[in-house]
Amino acid sequence: MTAAHTEDLFRYALRLGDDSLILGQRLGEWCARSPEMELDIALMNTSLDLFGRARTFLTYAGEVEGKGRDEDALAFLRDVGGFSNALLVEQPNGDYACTIARQFLFDAFDVAFMAALTRSSDATLAAVAAKAVKESTYHLRFSRDWLVRLGDGTAESHDRMQAGLEEMWPFLHELFEMDAAEQRLVAAGVAVDREALRAGVEARIDEALTEATLTRPVDGWQPVGGRRGDHSEHLGFLLAEMQWMQRAYPGSQW
């Protein structure tokens, strides 16, 4: 492996880990606050699936980097600018409809992404993806079901679901963004061509929106930058809560 390839692979594993970690943390904020006890369990199950995935990706990133950083060092000791998650996953929970909108857009993408990643020439990434694709299929079933319930529910639930969708929609596009490093990894058979997933994912989304009697938001503002560490102001607050204990008591363990 050349040094350049190692650097690309490190960044790739890192951003996959960051997407899972930050979304898992966001969902975790619902713990004991969900609208129903059953939904509390459901959201925490999804959160824990994502944390499990984050651990594997970040551990792998640390191994590839070869500088002795483990999953904890990568999760708890990087600052905002060092995180490479997509902007979508750091967006605040809002109300339950808003959380469902964020989750649905992520899941619709993630099912297609993980299915493609199972064909990666990198054995570790392919193995994580094989496990993740089953989890994500259920996550999508859950979030899509709620999107339809709320969209095709009462006048209030419809309006909230539409509002949540409008809130999260601009951040969908970054999930399809390819940078030079990912393009090199696609050529090497390691990474997924995100752009190639777009048509299928959007068709899946449109179909659900129709069933949910929701209106597809107009494509306008399409912020990017998460992959290179340019984050919204929300991520810092999330990290403060997630990281404070390791910062205050370095090396502490359960």
Binding site: E38, L39, A42, N45, F142, D145
Partner: peptide, 19 residues
């Protein structure tokens, strides 16, 4: 479990009792 309909009951049961 509590659920609004049968489909949601299956989902909630899955999350609560088969994790």
């Amino acid at each position: 479990v509590h659920a609004a309909d049968a489909e949601m009951a299956i989902a909630n049961a899955r999350d609560l009792y088969t994790r």
